[in-house]
């Protein structure tokens, strides 16, 4: 048991707990921002400024009765929320969130601020994101209710459609960074151009960034693409029949997926933990700031834009986003060939 090994275990547990906390924080931020955008107050009774509201919500959910429809498929009904939550947590394992650190000299050698370094990290995130759709689809099917089934079907159709654009946007930024490892991608964005503009891939891939964020919203089933749970038409979509903690697990998965998509976007497009003013060892502060900015953008979008119609969503995915992503990839590939030669 070397100190480095213990530090790695502590780091893993830390990331797990922080992901849980981030979901709770995002619930609060979502409600507060929504309230402010609608000129309401939002939660303000529990704790100072309503800060303890998420904890109250969790306690309430824990004491609710766990219900299951009589005609539901018991095994899959129980399995679905587990798949959703597991995939959400697993994806963050390969995301680096800071430069190597020795924890202010406590450790004999430096440690990576990342649970696991994989040389195909980007693909791992993509693979786990594509697995998370099973949680939603199975929840929809196993509930044996028409609203749930429609939600599940919509989720699978939507995720297939947007995964292509998502993957192509990733591919074009990977061409520029010339690596599949998130850590190497971040290292490729250190420094500045002309001393003022940071070398973020955002400036080389503006279209790729927009496509990534749009497809990311669709992948995480957020408004304006929240068809799998469109409450005006489908009650609550795939999780209509879920209650208590199994419902909480879907909720948790949705917010953690948001955090992961934002963290990957930060690593790929916004230079990760590189930023001015702060020393390298405090780079994680920049990382947190950038992720928070993208998360705020998510919440902002949700409460600003109305939901599309379903056929509009499909047409937009296949006829606008996908051709744009293909053209972006071709132009990027040509550019990389031209400038590398």
């Amino acid at each position: 048991m070397t100190p480095l090994f213990i530090a790695q275990i502590v780091l893993t547990l830390f990331v797990f707990v922080m992901l849980l906390n981030s979901a709770a924080a995002m619930v609060y931020v979502e409600r507060k921002v929504a309230a402010l955008l609608q000129q309401r107050l939002g939660p303000y009774l529990v704790g100072p400024k309503g800060l303890l509201q998420p904890i109250a919500d969790v306690i309430k959910l824990m004491f609710k009765e766990e219900l299951r429809p009589k005609a539901a498929d018991a095994f899959l009904f129980a399995l679905a929320p587990i798949i959703a939550a597991t995939c959400a947590f697993a994806a963050f394992a390969v995301v680096p969130f800071g430069a190597d650190t020795t924890l202010f000299g406590w450790l004999p050698s430096s440690m990576r601020l990342q649970v696991a370094e994989v040389n195909v990290a980007v693909l791992v995130v993509f693979a786990i994101a594509s697995m998370s759709v099973y949680g939603i689809v199975l929840a929809g099917w196993s509930s044996n209710s028409k609203y749930s089934l429609l939600g599940g079907l919509r989720a699978s159709a939507q995720m297939i459609s947007y995964e292509l654009s998502y993957g192509l946007a990733l591919a074009s930024v990977l061409l520029i960074g010339n690596s599949l490892s998130l850590r190497e991608m971040v290292d490729g964005q250190a420094g500045t151009w002309f001393g003022i503009i940071p070398r973020w891939f955002l400036f080389l891939q503006p279209l790729g960034f927009v496509i990534y964020l749009t497809a990311g919203i669709a992948e995480t089933n957020r408004a304006p693409f929240d068809f799998p749970e469109a409450e005006q038409e489908l009650v609550a979509g795939y999780h209509t029949e879920y209650s208590s903690m199994s419902f909480a697990m879907f909720f948790l998965a949705e917010y953690i997926n948001m955090v992961t998509v934002s963290a990957v976007a930060t690593d790929l497009f916004l230079g990760g933990w590189h930023g001015p003013f702060l020393p390298e060892s405090l780079g994680w502060i920049w990382f947190l700031l950038k992720v928070s900015a993208i998360l705020f953008f998510y919440v902002w979008m949700r409460w600003t834009l109305p939901r599309y119609r379903y056929d509009q969503l499909m047409a937009f995915g296949w006829k606008v986003l996908l051709p744009l992503a293909v053209v972006n990839l071709l132009v990027t590939a040509a550019g990389v060939l031209y400038f590398a030669a």
């Binding site: 693979a127 697995m131 099973y134 689809v137 079907l153 699978s156 297939i160 995964e163």
Partner: peptide
């Protein structure tokens, strides 16, 4: 597992 089986399931 991700793309083709989702289509199957669909």
């Amino acid at each position: 597992a991700g793309a083709i089986m989702v289509l199957f399931l669909f």
